[in-house]
Amino acid sequence: MTAVLTVQGLSAGYGRTIVLRDVSFEVGEGEVACIMGRNGAGKTTLLRSLMGVLPKTGTVRILDADVSHWPGHRINAAGMVWVTQEDSVFPGLTVREHLYIALGGEGVDEGIEAAASLFPVLGERLGQEAQTLSGGERKMLGLAQALIVKPRVVLMDEPTEGVAPVLVEGLIPAIAAVARKAAVVLVEQNIDTALALGSKAHVLERGAIVESGNVQELHDRGVLEQRLAL
């Protein structure tokens, strides 16, 4: 399988503090690579560096394009989108305006229709300021922004974290649907979610990958439980 996302020798950190050390992995189309690890292992830092928010060393490629030193907006234009953990929104901007920005102003009507069919509650609140949505609805908005642009690579940071179980049941199929057409890097601490969505897992400890393999196999061997100290 051709790798859509290739990460080689990636190191990154904050100031003089190195958080990620020599991280390498590949993700192909239709694959979900779960990045697992305890708090502080460097999972979110990995996504930030992939998205161009943090300076880094090493190589990041999307198909044939070396995006290692590209700014975030160019990486986004190359097909990489990020669903953040913090369900971040722009204060003062409506749901419709968020979707407009995600779509880059192109195919807006179709995109908004697609978002509304994925998450009907968003369709009912297009004119509402996004900061007034509930936490779960913001997660849906974040996912909708990522899904409607037909991305090549999707970075997801614990998309079901803090979401009511009844809503998680709706989110998992939506994530699985996008994963069929894109390469997904899923930061996840919940083993059940990783098992439901993931194909491969990479376990991070102190910024380095210490275990890689099929999610189910790692689970069967008890590696995930041991490494995550569950």
């Binding site: 998205m51 975030g72 989108v81 990020w82 722009f90 901007l93």
Partner: peptide, 25 residues
């Protein structure tokens, strides 16, 4: 306008705007 929308997004959260494809610079 599209510029105005990008401007309002950049002002309140430049990091998020940049990763959503807005050339914040």
């Amino acid at each position: 306008t599209s510029f105005g929308l990008h401007a309002r997004a950049t002002v309140v959260n430049p990091g998020l705007a940049e990763t959503m494809g807005v050339n914040t610079g």
